[in-house]
Simulated assay, not measured.
Amino acid sequence: MSIWRVILSIICPPLAVLDKGCGSILITFLLWLCGWVPGVIAALIILNNPKR
C-alpha cells in the first residue's frame, strides 16, 4: 500500500479502490455516503488486504 493510496483513501475513498473490483467500489461508495469515516475505514481495509 503506497502513501498515495492512503492519501487518496482519506480524500475520496471510492477512487482509492478503483482497481479492486466492482464490489469493493460499491461497498466503499455506499459506506462513504453513510459517512466519511466508515468509507475511509473500508477503503483502508480493502487496500491493506493482499491480492489473492
Rank of each mutant, 00 (worst) to 15 (best):
M1S: 12
S2I: 07
S2M: 08
S2N: 13
I3D: 09
I3P: 04
I3V: 12
W4S: 13
W4A: 12
W4T: 12
W4C: 04
R5I: 08
R5Q: 15
R5V: 06
R5K: 14
R5W: 10
V6F: 10
V6K: 13
V6C: 10
I7G: 11
I7C: 13
I7Y: 06
L8V: 11
L8Q: 10
S9C: 14
I11S: 10
I11V: 15
I11W: 12
C12Y: 15
C12G: 05
C12V: 15
C12M: 14
P13H: 07
P14K: 01
P14H: 03
P14I: 11
P14A: 11
P14R: 00
L15H: 03
L15A: 14
A16W: 10
A16I: 12
A16H: 08
A16V: 10
V17Y: 00
V17C: 10
V17D: 01
V17T: 06
L18C: 09
L18A: 09
L18F: 05
L18N: 04
L18K: 06
D19W: 02
D19Q: 09
K20H: 10
K20G: 07
K20T: 14
K20Y: 11
G21L: 03
G21V: 02
C22V: 14
C22A: 06
C22M: 07
C22K: 07
C22E: 07
C22Y: 03
C22D: 03
G23K: 04
G23S: 02
G23F: 03
G23P: 02
S24H: 00
S24F: 00
I25N: 00
I25A: 01
I25Q: 01
L26E: 09
L26H: 03
I27E: 05
I27V: 15
I27N: 04
I27R: 06
I27K: 05
I27G: 05
T28L: 07
T28D: 04
T28Q: 04
F29M: 09
F29P: 01
F29T: 15
L30R: 06
L30N: 06
L30V: 15
L30E: 07
L31W: 10
L31F: 13
L31A: 13
L31D: 10
W32R: 05
W32S: 15
L33N: 08
C34M: 11
C34E: 04
G35A: 09
G35C: 06
W36Q: 13
W36H: 11
W36S: 13
W36L: 14
V37H: 00
G39D: 12
G39S: 10
V40C: 10
V40H: 03
I41D: 02
I41T: 05
I41A: 11
I41G: 00
I41E: 03
A42E: 08
A42M: 12
A43S: 15
L44Y: 07
L44H: 11
I45D: 08
I45G: 03
I45R: 07
I46A: 02
I46C: 01
I46P: 00
L47F: 08
L47M: 08
N48C: 00
N48Q: 01
N48Y: 01
N48P: 00
N48W: 00
N49T: 09
N49L: 14
P50A: 09
P50M: 04
K51Q: 13
K51A: 11
K51T: 15
K51R: 15
R52H: 02
R52K: 10
R52N: 04
